[in-house]
Amino acid sequence: MNKKELLKVTGLCKNFGGVKAVDNVSFTLYEGESIGVIGPNGSGKSTLINLITGFLKPDSGTVLYKGKNITGIAPYKAVNIGIARSFQMVRPFYNMEAYKNLIVPLYSPRVKKQLKGGSYGDRDEVAIQLLEDVGFERESQIPYKMTGSLPHGYLKRLELARVLSLEPDLVVLDELFSGMSMSEVASTVPILERILKEGRNMIMIEHRIRELFRIVNKIICLNFGKKIAEGTPVEVMQMKEVKEAYLGSEADSIA
């Protein structure tokens, strides 16, 4: 099979004051694939994502995206070539109405060309549509409420909506499900599956193994900044290192 490389990470390293947060991590994401990143807390998952999306500059190693070297690219440039990320800790604009949050990404060069309209034109309409897609009730007041007054689950979905508004080729989600209720997770999983069906790729950090394994077709496991396992969900779960490092007894219950 002739698969095209979308993202190729080689030998990525990052130190924080002597601690190796990410230590020589390499992996390749082929087009049409989605990768889940797992590992115990503090194993360098978020750092890895920050390195890929340009929010941190790696000490060494390279990141290739569609064959182009994007190591240490400015974060906004990464977005404009199609890599959009969500934050683990939500970062909405608290002093605006919820739907106004999406005006900012819709204003980015990547999307701006496709949309016209000013204050009450297309952008607002698109924003509300996007919010509906991630589960904001269209007919309710929720999209028009101040962001600061929304519950946490909504803020998480707002993060997802922001990522989707950027029309990304590569969706990078940092613990999207943390802080969501069971029902919210259950309603979000189909959205993610739909994103994949649209032909987008995904890198997902997640602690909710059950949902993660449903969505992605490849798993990378990190521990102390090192990649200790890579493979399909079933393969990875059976590896001894992974069980020891992270999954523990839970692995048996899922298998």
Binding site: Y76, M96, V104, S119
Partner: peptide, 24 residues
């Protein structure tokens, strides 16, 4: 009140999100 002005206000609110929204 314009979308452009909204982007500028957003910087005051949370600059990281503006970056993640693809704007310098």
């Amino acid at each position: 009140d314009t979308d452009y002005g909204l982007v500028l206000r957003a910087i005051h609110d949370n600059d990281m999100s503006v970056l993640a929204g693809g704007l310098s």
